[in-house]
Amino acid sequence: HNLTITQGKLFFHYNPKLCLSEIHKMEEVSGTKGRQERNDIALKTNGDQASCENELLKFSYIRTSFDKILLRWEPYWPPDFRDLLGFMLFYKEAPYQNVTEFDGQDACGSNSWTVVDIDPPLRSNDPKSQNHPGWLMRGLKPWTQYAIFVKTLVTFSDERRTYGAKSDIIYVQTDATNPSVPLDPISVSNSSSQIILKWKPPSDPNGNITHYLVFWERQAEDSELFELDYCLKGLKLPSRTWSPPFESEDSQKHNQSEYEDSAGECCSCPKTDSQILKELEESSFRKTFEDYLHNVVFVPRKTSSGTGAEDPRPSRKRRSLGDVGNVTVAVPTVAAFPNTSSTSVPTSPEEHRPFEKVVNKESLVISGLRHFTGYRIELQACNQDTPEERCSVAAYVSARTMPEAKADDIVGPVTHEIFENNVVHLMWQEPKEPNGLIVLYEVSYRRYGDEELHLCVSRKHFALERGCRLRGLSPGNYSVRIRATSLAGNGSWTEPTYFYVTDYLDVPSNIA
């Protein structure tokens, strides 16, 4: 807008934040220059609390790290170098490059900038070799853009010569660093050979998330399962459950009422301010606690030095998902009996873990797994792929695949051998790939016309006998059925096997 004052003059007093240069501009645009008398524009009460600059400061050096910015700028000295009290560095987070010096300023003089007072450097006698002032900004957020400017702080001049310097606002972004852990990993099994893994992005990506790394490792069953005799009275049979499938998407929606109208769909109840505040506090606490764990609990591995020492970490090797089922080394339970199943799973520490690289999504279907087997899954978020990966501390989750139908069934015939004193040795093959492992066998036998009897055969007993022995049988026709019990439950009964026990007292003698 054009402003013209045809008559009258300007009068400025007691404006401590208004620089004289701005008042002189007002004289020019209003056409009143030359009308004012000496005392109409006070030299001592206008701009006496402001830094009124008329020179431009330029930054000469900028260096960044993930949490620091090192700045240096060209030296500046007023005509009387004693008038320079120091520099004021202003900075704040700036997602967009549209910041002005006066953003967030209120009537009390406060604003949204963080201000650092910096002492002037030592003055050199040689004007050509003056030290460049600077400042190291610490405690910054990774991968965050900051708006920065600097200006001088000078003393009051009796001659009211307006001098000083100020830089333009520059924008500097800190470097990326390792992201925080992925949030809320959930693993479920939808079949006997697959596990579905879902997660949420890290709360602090500290860069642009480029991919996720998912490692999985087959877990050995508890050692007590191999040692305890679950045929003993009072000892509860062990059981394991597989990871249940995901709930429906509708039930997972946030901010939804727990109660549904019987007449149909209901609208979600909005969260109160107290609920939102509580969630923010919980989120802040979780982030602080995660940072504490990362800094205190997890110790970084030592990389190899120039002395030739090897990095103890196993090298990563990509495998196809079809090879995942046989990740671990199978060892027989008892070496003397080769027909026992290889369900003991000690994992070799030198073995390469299978892994998958996930790009542009937060889910993965891990296939080719062994049925009813526990897996430990390790999830890392990465925001750099080359020249070397920059990934987060791992988040861990466990899951067990679903049982395989008929995996616990005894394959092959049940054979028998009759000894003296009416002892019958029953023999059968253990299931080759049971659900988890076989903890015991149930032997059901009966003599024709009598009630059915049951015998429990422990895992250890089966390994020693290759089956079991029935003792003290009365003469007669017998039928026997056997079924295995694994961590997933009972298998199917075998087809009945028949044998006849004679009275050993009636056996004919070869003595003449």
Rank of each mutant, 00 (worst) to 15 (best):
K460S: 11
Y504G: 08
G322S: 15
S320G: 14
Y504K: 13
F285Q: 02
G306R: 12
S243Q: 07
V443T: 05
E290Y: 02
Y292W: 14
I276D: 01
P270S: 05
D506G: 14
V423K: 10
V443F: 01
D250I: 08
S509F: 05
D385P: 11
E388A: 10
E279C: 02
V423M: 06
D229C: 09
S341M: 14
R319F: 10
G472H: 11
R319T: 13
Y396D: 01
E442M: 03
A381R: 00
P244G: 13
P387G: 15
K432V: 07
V480W: 10
C269F: 04
E247C: 09
V327R: 13
V480T: 12
G476L: 00
G308F: 10
S398D: 04
N383D: 01
S320W: 11
K236I: 11
K361N: 03
R370T: 14
N422V: 04
K302H: 11
L379P: 02
S243H: 12
N490Y: 07
I410H: 15
K361C: 07
I482L: 04
P238L: 04
S342D: 13
P245W: 09
D506I: 10
V331P: 13
E221T: 03
A405F: 15
T347P: 08
H425F: 12
A463V: 10
S284C: 03
G368Y: 06
N383F: 02
P244K: 10
R446A: 07
C269P: 04
L437N: 13
Q252A: 12
A263L: 12
S305K: 15
A405H: 13
D273H: 15
E417Y: 06
S479G: 08
F462H: 13
R471V: 03
K460L: 12
H416R: 10
R447K: 02
R447C: 13
L440F: 11
E350R: 09
F226E: 08
F246Q: 14
V457M: 06
L293A: 06
A407M: 06
L379Q: 02
N206W: 03
D323K: 05
L487C: 14
E260F: 06
A335N: 09
V507N: 15
I209Y: 07
L453A: 09
S262K: 08
L364S: 06
L280T: 05
Y396Q: 07
E217K: 02
S458W: 05
V365E: 13
P403Q: 02
V397A: 14
N477E: 06
E227P: 08
I209C: 15
K317L: 14
S223R: 13
L505P: 11
E279P: 03
E279A: 06
Y375V: 09
Y500S: 09
R286P: 01
V331M: 14
C231F: 01
